[in-house]
């Protein structure tokens, strides 16, 4: 383990109690993710991927075990510190986009900045615009979510995750609702951000998507059953170029 570990998880469990029977969604996870990694979490439905992401994202508390984010014990933190952590260190991208409806792209992206109490970096509107430009939506700032395609909505969500300049991007099935081409577009964006130093952890069902990551972690019944580096890593931008040529 080195100084630059972003995520350090040991013996993490999460048990849901449903009446008399218990569901061990996570049954003892050990996982370390270092800065600059790009990890794909895979596994069958119900294997505990989302539960793990929610733990990493400080949205839910483990039943037992320890979780350090950027060297900080998350279990010790109160609700306010957790909120600040989510605000500053983490960016979320969900399968269902989770944008505020009837709220323009720009306002959606601006939202995390409104909750930023660190006093960092000035004009939230222009920062939001820059984040949208970064995901290629500089010309859609005034659009409402229902005026955007699924891929565009997901890119707004990515801009929202990026606007606070987090150290860790978490994405739970970010391409689950997108077609192949748009999925590759999103992955190209992730790879580009990862190249710039952002640590990425994403959940995916699809092998073709997972091969754009640097490392694959596979879950089964709440346990990690495989943890391997990706050897023939894909290059999403290049693949996208090929698809475009093929279409033309």
């Amino acid at each position: 383990m080195n100084e630059r570990d972003v995520i350090r998880i040991e013996g993490l469990t999460r048990t849901y109690v449903m009446g008399t029977n218990q569901v061990h969604a996570l049954a003892g996870i050990d996982l370390t993710v270092s800065a600059g990694e790009m990890v794909a979490v895979m596994g069958a439905s119900g294997s505990g991927k989302s539960t793990l992401m929610n733990m990493i994202g400080c949205l839910d508390q483990p039943t037992s075990g320890s979780y350090e984010l950027d060297g900080e014990q998350v279990a010790d933190l109160g609700r306010n510190r957790l909120a600040d952590l989510r605000n500053r260190r983490l960016g979320f991208v969900f399968q269902g986009f989770n944008l505020l409806s009837r709220t323009s792209a720009q306002e959606n992206v601006e939202l995390p900045l409104l909750y930023d109490r660190s006093g960092r970096g000035g004009d939230s509107a222009s920062r939001a615009r820059r984040a949208l430009e970064r995901v290629g939506l500089g010309d859609r700032t005034g659009h409402l979510p229902n005026e955007l395609s699924g891929g565009q909505q997901q890119r707004v969500a990515i801009a929202r995750a990026l606007v606070t300049e987090p150290s860790l991007l978490l994405a739970d099935e970010p391409t689950g609702n997108l077609d192949t081409r748009t999925s590759i577009e999103v992955l190209a964006l992730f790879q580009e951000l990862n190249d710039q130093g952002l640590t990425v952890v994403m959940v995916t069902h699809e092998k073709e998507i997972a091969r754009y990551a640097k490392r694959i972690v596979e879950l089964r019944d709440g346990l990690i059953v495989r943890d391997v580096p990706v050897h023939d890593r894909g290059h999403a931008a290049a693949d996208l170029g090929r698809i475009m040529e093929g279409a033309a």
């Binding site: 989510r86 605000n87 939202l111 909750y115 929202r160 606070t164």
Partner: peptide
């Protein structure tokens, strides 16, 4: 959503 992106 607001809580996920950092609302206390």
């Amino acid at each position: 959503i607001r809580m996920a992106i950092g609302a206390r």
